[in-house]
Design a protein around this nucleic acid. Structure first.
Lengths: 189, 189
DNA sequence: GAAATCATTTGCCATTTGGCAAAAAGTAAC
DNA sequence: GTTACTTTTTGCCAAATGGCAAATGATTTC
């Protein structure tokens, strides 16, 4: 709980009453490794916050290959924005890479918070804008680099993930084959 | 002018008085091909809207190569968010790929609008969130594709750009060399 | 702890892409 | 129209990556 509010309060201020009200809407959820937080083809109805564990967002490209779009670490919000905001089917899976502990808002509670708490929308917008910018900043440079450089950058960005995420997920995030990544790792050591 | 408000009003409603007030802050600016709208190392102080022409955002990677991060077309907002919001030096250049006509808000006017017009911040947040999501959606899939597929996707996303943007910019956007892109084009014809 | 299952590494070779330099095509300036 | 300059194409070869399958290593299950 503290983790979540430490996170939120970095983006704006709330008084104790507001914090309590937000807290009253929170659900504690555990997700087992490989289970889904949300799925392609379904409509997203929750906003989550990871207190422990790693999630990833992935989809299947037109060759049927699984592509990992990005990883989400502890102390970050998780929401399939496009689907949640517009109540349309999602095109991506959000999957637990490790066992996860999360705090979750149901959509109706989330909307109530937005209408009730003055300034909540501003905080949320800041959080979301920052998350989206980070995504762009992280993924974009990969395009212009070779496999080895991509992997080195991956380790800079996600230093705590390397040993907790299967090689296959990292490979699909970096856009190289599993065997290439395995060779890249060998060369680096 | 109409173009701009058509764009804005797709994200929320404004009354005539509000529209007039916004309009009163607008400056018309022309930028010549190859000139910069904003530059790395400087602090961004403007929000722009392209009524005619194409811009691109680019930077120099650690090998000194110029990388095009993305293109911005007519009828889109242009702002170096990180720099504009936090008044820190930018790390990217925003450059005119063709001669451009733009409408521009100075930072102080922009902030005044945010404080004065009820609901303006919500509209702005929606515009920005959408633009950021589009960036992620467009750039992210490139990572997992080969050069030819990247180019085909580029043409889908930016059908009107192919003939207005030099090969070298497209190549650096796609993360392939100029000669590779030239060969890719040959193979496709 | 043996068998089954899953993840990673490796070998072999084909394909793609890069690096470099020269040629060709296209543009602009006089 | 000739010259100078820029952009794009091409050839040649080297390096990086992919595809496939087998081998090895790690983990789980009974």
């Amino acid at each position: 709980m503290k983790q979540l509010f430490d996170f939120i309060l970095r983006f704006g201020n709330l008084n104790q009453q507001q914090i309590d009200f937000i807290a009253s809407k929170l659900l504690v959820v555990e997700i087992k490794k490989d289970d889904y937080f949300s799925e392609a083809g379904k409509i997203s109805r929750q906003v989550g916050f990871i207190t422990e564990g790693i999630l990833r967002v992935c989809y299947y490209n037109n060759k049927g290959e699984e592509v990992t779009k990005y990883f989400i670490e502890e102390n970050n919000l998780v929401v399939d924005l496009e689907s949640f905001d517009n109540q349309i089917c999602s095109s991506a899976y959000v999957q637990a890479v490790t066992d996860c502990k999360m705090m979750v808002f149901e959509r109706k509670d989330w909307l109530e918070l937005l209408q009730t708490i003055v300034g909540w929308d501003t905080i949320v917008h800041k959080i979301i804008a920052r998350a989206l910018m980070l995504k762009v900043e992280r993924r974009s440079p990969l395009v212009s680099e070779d496999g080895t450089t991509r992997y080195l950058k991956f380790m800079e960005i996600y230093p705590t993930l390397v040993n907790r995420v299967p090689l296959s997920y990292i490979a699909s995030y970096l856009g190289v084959t599993q065997s290439s990544l395995s060779r890249i790792r060998k060369n680096i050591r």
